Computed example of a mutant assay.
Amino acid sequence: MPSHRSALLPFAAALAGVGFLSLMDAFMKEAALLIGAYTATVLRAFIGAALIAPVWLSRGPAMPTRAVWRLHAERGVVSAFMALTFFHSLTLLPLAEAIALSFIAPLIALYLARVLLGETISRAAIGASLLGFAGTLVIVGGRIGEGRFDEDAAWGIASLMVSALLYAYNFIVIRRQAQVAGPLEIATFHSGIGGLVLLTLAPVLWQPPEAAALWPLVVAGALTVAGSLSIAWAYARAEANVLVPTEYSGFVWAAGMGWLFFREPVTLPTLAGTALIVTGCWLATRPQRAAPVATA
């Protein structure tokens, strides 16, 4: 049936996009372990910009207005430190565990949307956020119970929470940005501005890149572009409530990549905590039923 196919293709594209980005995380973890999270994040940003900018420019685009420039700059700054803290956490935590904890970002975004956009927070959203918080405690508590909560784990979780907070704010910026710019323009300025912002810290944090890290970085840059464009294509052709569940497939990808690349086991507390967080996200994002209309 045509309608079934039209719904299936965007879902498949979104699922592939999440897979591309999850595989990118694995390559970025490999690069970050070799040359540090900072250098790896900067190089990935510029590689991504070098791959996507020619495509955008080949279409003969008009340059952004001053207002759009401000949005590009705002998101570039936010996403730069969001990526840096996330990739730093990957050097300290298992891949699946980091992805699981990052799922709390959409729940944080609910409260930011209330503060910044004046949106109403429903009872379901409050309950969802409590489930997400409980899931986080289960994952962290599992580490403590198994005696794996050391200084590295503490810094990794703290770094990931900062990244999740920035990612939640990133949702707010993207919502405004997508209304005034296309996916290719957004991807170009997102990578380029993010790299330039992080470059200001080079005198303090830069490490000379090893040759062994260049291949993972090039692959990570290409996967970033592929994932971003796949998801943008999907969201332009299907409603968000149809595609949101694909985001949670990232945990399955991360668990597989973590084991395949780094032989990282997935613990029961991580699985249980992930289930709570994902349930909270599902409750928060599912469409609300309209109130019944009384008949005369």
Rank of each mutant, 00 (worst) to 15 (best):
H72E: 12
F87W: 03
R114H: 06
G273M: 09
A45S: 15
G273I: 10
F11I: 14
A80V: 02
L43N: 11
G76F: 12
A222N: 04
I99F: 04
S228I: 11
A213F: 04
L137I: 11
W56S: 05
N170V: 01
R75A: 03
T91P: 03
L223A: 14
F149Q: 08
T91A: 13
F133T: 15
G17E: 05
L199P: 01
G250V: 12
A296Y: 03
V293Y: 10
E264T: 11
Y248F: 14
R286A: 13
A232P: 00
I144M: 14
I99V: 15
V78D: 02
S22E: 07
W253D: 11
L198V: 12
P10Y: 10
R289H: 10
I99C: 03
L90T: 08
G135R: 01
V244L: 12
A220N: 05
S79I: 12
A181K: 09
A290K: 09
A211V: 14
A222M: 07
A178Q: 12
N170Q: 07
G194R: 01
G48F: 03
V197N: 03
L283N: 03
V18N: 07
R289N: 08
E247M: 09
I121H: 03
R59Q: 13
A13N: 04
F262D: 04
F46I: 11
A153S: 14
W206I: 09
F189Q: 03
L15K: 00
L160N: 06
Q207N: 12
A100V: 02
A232Q: 07
F11R: 06
M28T: 15
V266A: 06
R59G: 14
R143Q: 13
T285D: 03
P61D: 09
G36P: 02
V293T: 15
L160F: 01
A13F: 12
V293M: 14
Y248E: 04
E247A: 13
S230K: 06
T274V: 09
R263E: 15
V266C: 03
A32P: 02
F189W: 15
A240G: 11
P245W: 06
G147R: 00
L92N: 10
A213M: 10
L23H: 04
L160R: 02
G280K: 00
W215F: 13
T285G: 03
G156F: 06
Q207A: 14
L131M: 14
G118N: 08
L268D: 04
G19K: 04
S129N: 05
V244A: 13
F86G: 01
V180T: 11
G17S: 04
F20W: 04
I157C: 03
A13D: 07
L276P: 00
